[in-house]
Design a protein around this nucleic acid. Structure first.
Lengths: 244, 244
DNA sequence: ACCTGAACACCGTTCAAGT
DNA sequence: ACCTGAACACCGTTCAAGT
């Protein structure tokens, strides 16, 4: 059989006119939800959630946005939920130990916070719907188990699980936004210095405490603020358990 | 002086050709930041934050989006901040009373939560930047004053103010989103029933507590969850004050 | 200084058509 | 069933031009 495909061209062909065979390019990885979420998370880690658009994810996969709908039927929102679940599934869990339930709970929430902070903007998704996917429920179950092991009432433990996860998400969202505001505006010194100046130059008649406590208000960093929030809440929870 | 303007037309003029005088239409209210924010809040109350686009606000004011930039130099984000400030300025404050600081703080936060809930989506703006506008600072100052009146340490009061406001915003955002998910999907019963079913039908081996405590996890409504969060945190705060 | 129409570069989603 | 190009109806923002 002669090689009928061997032809000569009298003119250089444009890229558009030449039929592109698979051999011309590295084989394209087939699409799948996993591959799509991978691409989305890569963009997320490099930039932030705002940059993760269907068009950009599609371009990263060398296709068009319409192609994504085969695997992500729910469109953008479903993609975001899938990204969120992937991030949550990296948080390591720990069997509850009655003697160190407080440290365990705090450590779990700190790991969750760290996972959020490694993925700019992802925390905002957590408030977008009640936890009902497996990775979110596994974290909640683990936290709930720790509180129950610590002797907290059933009803208190249930409500506390809700509050603690809410607080962690909120703190992460706050951090994300502060960070995204910091970028781009290189002219401003840093955001903390700016806030300190704002507070101290407030009219003292209307803002006696803000002007006086500017240091206390701004000093502690995110980690310290987070730990205070959780610790104080757990103090209250323990006090309730003793009171009953 | 004869009335030179009195003319007759031999042909009916098209709407485009006829010079439109002010008399032809009700006088158009002049633009201003106040008028723009009014229009934006009207759309917000009737629908939600997603519906408040510059194009829609402009149409409501019988103009184009470019016209808004005269008064809202910062574009969409500045408009959102202005809306947020207007909502916060409706929250009534109260001089601190050392004997009832806990009730006062809870009541203040409940009024803030109510203001958020009356304006779907507005709470999301609160996390978008550190409080530095007057209405936000006045609420924070008032809360801080209550905590200090209650004998809380300076540093604890500062951190607690931060946490309490964060918790209130987070709870409001959560409510907003639950509510917006409820709309449109009339086929689903209600969201609580659906969650209850989800929890009870989880594999008991992996989720022993979630399956058993479904009632406790879902039962309490938003108001009850909010009160628990704040109360428990204040318990912890009071316990810290006594301990020192 | 105020206002505007038109354009620009995006966005999520749908759909008819191809394989 | 999978993939695609093209279009649709939006979005925020900019800009030259008018008053």
């Amino acid at each position: 059989m002669t090689n009928v495909r061997r032809v000569t061209y009298s003119w250089p062909m444009t890229a558009d006119a030449r039929p592109r065979s698979r051999r011309d390019r590295p084989a394209k990885a087939p699409l799948s939800e996993e591959v799509i979420v991978d691409a989305a998370l890569a963009i997320l880690r490099a930039e932030d959630l705002k940059a993760v658009t269907l068009q950009r994810v599609a371009i990263a996969l060398d296709t068009g946005p319409a192609s994504l709908y085969v695997y992500i039927k729910g469109g953008r929102d479903e993609l975001r939920q899938a990204m969120y679940d992937r991030v949550l599934s990296t948080v390591t869990l720990e069997p509850p130990n009655a003697d160190r339930w407080r440290e365990q709970a705090l450590a779990l929430l700190e790991r969750l916070l760290a996972a959020f902070e490694a993925h700019p903007g992802i925390a905002a998704i957590s408030l977008a719907n009640p936890a009902s996917t497996r990775p979110a429920l596994l974290i909640a179950e683990n936290l709930l188990a720790m509180l129950l092991a610590g002797g907290i009432t059933r009803q208190d433990a249930a409500l506390a699980t809700d509050t603690l996860l809410l607080l962690t998400s909120a703190r992460a969202i706050e951090t994300d936004v502060w960070r995204s505001q910091d970028d781009g505006h290189d002219d401003q010194p840093d955001i903390e210095q700016h806030l300190h100046d704002t507070y101290t130059s407030l009219p003292a008649a209307e803002f006696p405490h803000f002007t006086e406590l500017a240091e206390e208000l701004i000093g502690p960093d995110t980690a310290a603020r987070f730990q205070f929030s959780i610790d104080t809440f757990l103090d209250g929870l323990a006090a309730r358990a003793k009171r009953d």
